[in-house]
Design a protein around this nucleic acid. Structure first.
Length: 301
DNA sequence: GCCCAAATAT
DNA sequence: GATATTTGGG
């Protein structure tokens, strides 16, 4: 089953949002603060200029084992851009250093969440801690807090799900107070993402399959060529005037893949090969805004 | 320092 | 109102 080893990963990557989907959206949106922070003379173009996140995103300490393809990074163009719309801190004047930069609200798009889930799934629920997840996701701009917060919510979601579908929906009827029913506020995002089965049931420690985790340094396809110069990168025609869910239902998150950072904790015990769970939601719903598209597939209601 | 859980802010 | 961010405790 060695082949599957690489397979799972390949598949995993494959499942990840395509470069096409991730690239577009991010341009512009360089918050004034950020621009100042990096001495960026704020692009005069009103035109959605290429993504110019931090000049040197990460220190790119990664592959020091050989040669690092210059600007041609080897990862999907995912970058965490912030949809700063109208938040001029106290430094409207524009002189306050960047040190007091406040991070704009991070938007967990289905795509991003998917990546999150995938990371957690492959890490294993037990090893899925904010730091590890964050590293595995390799999303630039994503902070541990972001992940931690999201993870927290995600766990609650899983717990809730467990509550209802455990034992074949034992609590289903009770309806009492203890059974958590689908709360409206529980989560809209989570529902749209496929949840690996192993999440709901504890994996028996008996057969622990430890798979050597492989960093996300590899990549395939064409993207490599274009990647690298996020700023010079050919912009996709698709340009979004503003954020928010386009009526088309195809909204990407402004995240560009960050170069695979050095993963320290790669002793992550990966149990269970990837389940053949199918995913969808690629085209998020476009129901007049935000609406749940697919409820949890756990039951066949 | 990290993680978890809750409270607060947007 | 919902979500993400922030703060406190272990």
């Amino acid at each position: 089953m060695r082949e599957e080893d690489s397979n799972w990963f390949s598949k995993w990557e494959d499942e990840l949002p395509s470069p096409d989907e991730l690239t577009p959206l991010s341009q512009t949106l360089i918050t004034p603060d950020l621009a100042l922070a990096f001495d960026i003379p704020t692009p005069p173009h009103a035109n959605p200029s290429p993504t110019s996140p931090p000049r040197h995103p990460p220190p790119t300490p990664t592959n020091h084992s050989g040669h690092l393809p210059p600007p041609s990074s080897v990862t999907q163009p995912i970058s965490a851009e912030f949809a700063d719309s109208s938040e001029l801190g106290p430094n409207s004047g524009g002189d306050e250093p960047a040190r007091t930069l406040k991070r704009p609200r991070l938007v967990w798009t289905p795509q991003l969440h998917k990546r999150f889930v995938d990371a957690v799934a492959h890490l294993g629920i037990k090893n899925a801690v904010p730091k590890t997840i964050m590293q595995l996701m390799s999303v630039d701009g994503l902070t541990r807090e972001n992940v931690a917060s999201h993870l927290q919510k995600y766990r609650l979601y899983l717990k809730r799900m467990q509550g209802l579908s455990v034992g074949g929906g034992g609590g289903g009827g009770g309806g009492g107070g203890l059974a958590a029913s689908s709360d409206p506020a529980t989560d809209h995002l989570f529902a749209s993402s496929p949840v690996p089965a192993h999440f709901l049931h504890p994996v028996r420690p008996s057969s622990e399959h430890y798979l050597p985790f492989v960093p996300v340094a590899l990549q395939h396809h064409q993207m490599a060529a274009a990647a690298g110069h996020p700023q010079l990168q050919p912009q996709y025609h698709r340009q979004v005037g503003h954020f928010g869910p386009p009526p088309n239902g195809q909204f990407e998150h402004p995240f560009l893949s960050r170069q695979a950072g050095p993963i320290h904790r790669m002793g992550a015990p990966i149990h269970n090969p990837v389940q053949p769970y199918v995913e969808d939601l690629e085209s998020a719903n476009a129901n007049g805004g935000r609406k749940v598209l697919t409820l949890f597939p756990t039951g066949d209601d």
